[in-house]
């Protein structure tokens, strides 16, 4: 499968402040995103995620390295013909309505009148802004702006979609809707490159991830390869027994009324806990094994650096 994005040894240093001091933001990033996959780009604040995207889209000039988008050098405007981009905290011309704004972005791609009208209508429906289509963007909430941003990113029916924090500022329902749209991209064969702090969402929608810390990629791979099936601990909720009864079996995490939440780290002790509850006439409320999550990997990776 060909690469939709190929970045090799990307370096960028900014000189900021009144007396400019060099600060190396990207220290040799190398990664590739295959066509058709959904790629999550993770990292703590200030790690270099947005700078990577800015280099990718030509907003800033890299000091070194090469970037290719859909087989073309990133500096060529033609590389952006089949690309859609949603910036973090999207800022648009707030005096335009969503419909006018989409018409303007369609003009930048040279779409014909008929195609433009059809796509605008379809996208407004897709992102759920049909009823607010003729409202000035300055009256939009942050979540609505995010939806308008997603619609403008899709106006050219892109092959590659770059989304910088697409789920930020959305309510749970909006987050689910946007997540569903991103999942649909995969079915349509689109490549998605996205950054997000909401790791549960990344885990749900991404095929591969890369974790960037301090301007370097410290972990990269398929989600299934990174996240193991190993059970980290088992959470057991019981009632009718004091926490002291479980001494040596598990760690009591919280007590609410007569309910005790236990963390049992040794898998072989789970059965002993269940037997104890049964013998002492307690009640087993729930029992759930916790496997490793992307969040665990992310926290481990970031704290190790």
């Amino acid at each position: 499968m060909a690469d939709a994005i190929r970045i090799e040894n990307l370096r960028k240093t900014f000189r900021l402040g009144f007396i400019p001091r060099p600060r190396e933001i990207l220290k040799g990033i190398t990664l590739s995103v295959r066509e058709g996959e959904t790629f999550g780009y993770l990292g703590p604040n200030g790690a270099g995620k947005t700078t990577t995207i800015k280099c990718l889209l030509g907003f800033v000039h890299p000091d070194a390295g090469t970037i290719e988008i859909l087989g073309r050098p990133h500096t060529s405007p033609r590389s952006r013909e089949r690309l859609g981009f949603l910036p973090e905290n999207p800022y648009f011309y707030d005096y335009l309505t969503a419909r006018e704004f989409l018409a303007f972005t369609a003009d930048l791609f040279g779409l014909g009148q008929e195609e433009k009208t059809e796509r605008i209508g379809r996208l407004l429906k897709l992102v759920g802004l049909e009823r607010a289509a003729d409202l000035a963007l300055r009256k939009y909430s942050r979540g609505m702006l995010q939806r308008a941003g997603l619609a403008q990113a899709l106006i050219n029916d892109p092959q590659l979609v770059v989304l910088d924090e697409p789920l930020g500022g959305m309510d749970p329902l909006g987050r689910k809707e946007i997540r569903d749209i991103i999942v649909r991209f995969k079915d349509e064969g689109k490549t998605v490159f996205l950054t997000s702090h909401i790791l549960q969402d990344i885990e749900m929608i991404c095929d591969r991830v890369a974790i960037i810390v301090g301007g370097r990629i410290v972990k990269e791979g398929g989600l299934r390869d990174l996240v193991s099936e190993k059970v980290l601990f088992t959470e057991v909720t019981v009632s009718g027994l004091p926490p002291q009864a479980f001494a040596g079996l598990g760690e009591s995490v919280s007590i609410q009324g007569d309910r005790v939440l236990l963390k049992v780290y040794d898998e072989s002790l789970v059965e002993a806990v269940v037997a104890l509850v049964h013998d002492r006439k307690g009640r087993l409320i729930s029992l759930s094994p916790r496997t490793e999550t992307l969040e665990d990997i992310f926290v481990d990776t970031v704290t190790c650096q």
């Binding site: 030509g58 952006r80 011309y93 972005t105 770059v162």
Partner: peptide, 12 residues
């Protein structure tokens, strides 16, 4: 106002 990001991401 960072509206330039939306523009420069287009084939412009």
């Amino acid at each position: 106002k960072k509206t330039i990001y939306t523009l420069l991401a287009k084939p412009l």
